[in-house]
Amino acid sequence: MDVFMKGLSKAKEGVVAAAEKTKQGVAEAAGKTKEGVLYVGSKTKEGVVHGVATVAEKTKEQVTNVGGAVVTGVTAVAQKTVEGAGSIAAATGFVKKDQLGKNEEGAPQEGILEDMPVDPDNEAYEMPSEEGYQDYEPEA
């Protein structure tokens, strides 16, 4: 019985440690998101679009440190934060509304985080759909 109880105690310690790591990862992701939003706020009209992409990228980098179902929630929060940063930029006159959601080359930025393969159960990952990809044929 002692062996059984000791095993359960060790398992509990492992769960607590994993929860603490997840909590730490979420806190880091939130900190990076805040950094990115402050970065966007300090940019001029020309830099705002690039700044919004930076927020998304920093958040995406930190999301990889967070495991399990938390990833889905962090990704949703990050996307809403990026959308909010863009709205703030438009409201303050840093950028025109028609410039939001495009990178410096004018290509749409939507789907940055949505296409990231995420499995809350950590069982399997699927690649994003290939609808947006084109076949590449090298020139002879």
Rank of each mutant, 00 (worst) to 15 (best):
M1N: 00
D2A: 01
V3T: 00
V3Q: 03
F4T: 00
K6C: 02
K6W: 02
L8M: 05
L8P: 00
A11E: 00
A11T: 06
K12R: 12
K12T: 14
K12A: 08
E13K: 06
E13I: 06
G14F: 14
A17E: 06
A17W: 13
A19L: 15
G25K: 13
G25N: 04
V26H: 00
A27R: 08
E28K: 06
K32A: 11
K32D: 00
K32N: 02
K32G: 01
T33Q: 01
K34Q: 02
E35N: 11
E35L: 06
E35A: 05
G36M: 14
V37F: 09
V37D: 00
V37R: 00
Y39D: 01
Y39K: 06
V40F: 13
V40A: 05
G41R: 11
S42A: 13
S42I: 14
S42R: 12
K43W: 15
K43V: 14
T44N: 01
V48G: 01
V48W: 15
V49M: 15
V49L: 14
G51D: 01
G51A: 12
G51F: 11
T54S: 13
T54W: 10
T54I: 13
V55I: 15
V63N: 01
V63P: 01
T64G: 06
N65W: 13
N65K: 05
V66R: 04
T75D: 04
T75G: 06
A76E: 06
A76C: 09
A78M: 14
Q79T: 05
Q79L: 11
K80F: 15
K80V: 07
T81P: 02
V82R: 04
V82S: 04
A85H: 03
A89Y: 10
A90C: 15
A91I: 06
T92R: 04
T92C: 13
V95Y: 15
V95S: 08
K96I: 03
G101D: 12
K102A: 10
N103H: 07
E104N: 07
E104V: 11
E105I: 01
G106H: 06
E110N: 10
E110T: 13
D115R: 04
V118I: 04
D119E: 12
P120E: 08
P120Y: 05
D121T: 10
E123Y: 05
A124Q: 05
Y125H: 08
Y125L: 09
Y125A: 03
P128Q: 06
E130F: 11
E131S: 14
D135G: 05
D135Y: 08
A140K: 11
